[in-house]
Structure formats: structure tokens, C-alpha cells
């Protein structure tokens, strides 16, 4: 084999080894990372569904736990500044509909509370339970 052919072959091998090899490895790594995250989210969802089931919810409903501070109390709604509710909402101020069972008479503006939301996660979640944080 002539030297110029060897040079081309070496460069090609380097390009394949470093470029395509690293690219393929990186993509595979990203795919695996995505799969792990999806699996974790599924496990968390199943856990929430199991907890909701124990609490008497219908099939497909989940139970989320949150912590926050009550900002306003209305007969059918509680406005809460809360921390991130994993799998549902980022940290912000949100108004939650109250279930009939929720004992909201004890809540006052400024109270730190722990609360539980029940629903399918598509806007029909209701606050079913709250207690002092």
C-alpha cells in the first residue's frame, strides 16, 4: 500500500473512531438517560396511584403531596404559595379547589401547611387533605 493511501486510511479511521464513535456513544448515552428518567417518572406515578387507591380514589387518579403557605381562604378554594410539587407543579402560588372532605376551616392566611391533591393531573385535581406543616 502506498503512503498516501495509508494516510487517507488513518485519517478515515480517526474520523470514524473519534467522530462517529463518540457521536454514537453520546446518542446512546442520551437515550439511556431519557429511558431512566421515564422509568423513574413511571415508578413515581404508580406510587402516587397506589396511595390514591388506598385513599379511596378512582382508577387512574393520583395523590400528590405539597407544602406551602396559605395566602387566602375561600369557601371552595385555597390559595397557596407552595414549593415544587414533584410531577405536577413548579414552586409558585396556585389556587386549589377544595374537596368537601377537606377540613379547611382551620386554615388561615399565613399558615404553613402540608396538603394532598387528588386527581388525574389534568386540571381536575382537588385538595383533599391538609395539616399544619
Amino acid at each position: 500500500m502506498r503512503m498516501w493511501q495509508v494516510a487517507i486510511l488513518v485519517n478515515l479511521a480517526l474520523a470514524v473512531g473519534l467522530g462517529f464513535g463518540y457521536g454514537a456513544w453520546g446518542r446512546r448515552l442520551a437515550t439511556l438517560d431519557g429511558e431512566v428518567k421515564t422509568a423513574q417518572a413511571q415508578v413515581e406515578q404508580l406510587t402516587r396511584e397506589r396511595e390514591a387507591c388506598f385513599a379511596g380514589a378512582r382508577i387512574g387518579e393520583q395523590l400528590w403531596e405539597g407544602r406551602g403557605i396559605v395566602r387566602a381562604v375561600y369557601p371552595k378554594m385555597l390559595i397557596v404559595t407552595h414549593e415544587e410539587i414533584r410531577g405536577l407543579l413548579p414552586a409558585r402560588t396556585t389556587g386549589f379547589r377544595l374537596a368537601d372532605s377537606a377540613d379547611h376551616d382551620r386554615a388561615h392566611a399565613g399558615d404553613p401547611i402540608r396538603f394532598w391533591l387528588q386527581g388525574t393531573g389534568t386540571g381536575n385535581n382537588v385538595l383533599v387533605r391538609l395539616e399544619s406543616w
Binding site: 403557605i69 395566602r71 387566602a72 390559595i79 402560588t93 388561615h108 392566611a109 399565613g110 399558615d111
Partner: peptide, 13 residues
């Protein structure tokens, strides 16, 4: 009590 002292009508968000 700072939030409670401001009252809730209108709500202080």
C-alpha cells in the same frame, strides 16, 4: 404572623 397581619381581603399573593 406577617402575612396574617396584612389580612386576606384582598388576598396578598
Amino acid at each position: 404572623e406577617a402575612i396574617a397581619e396584612l389580612g386576606q381581603s384582598p388576598p396578598v399573593l
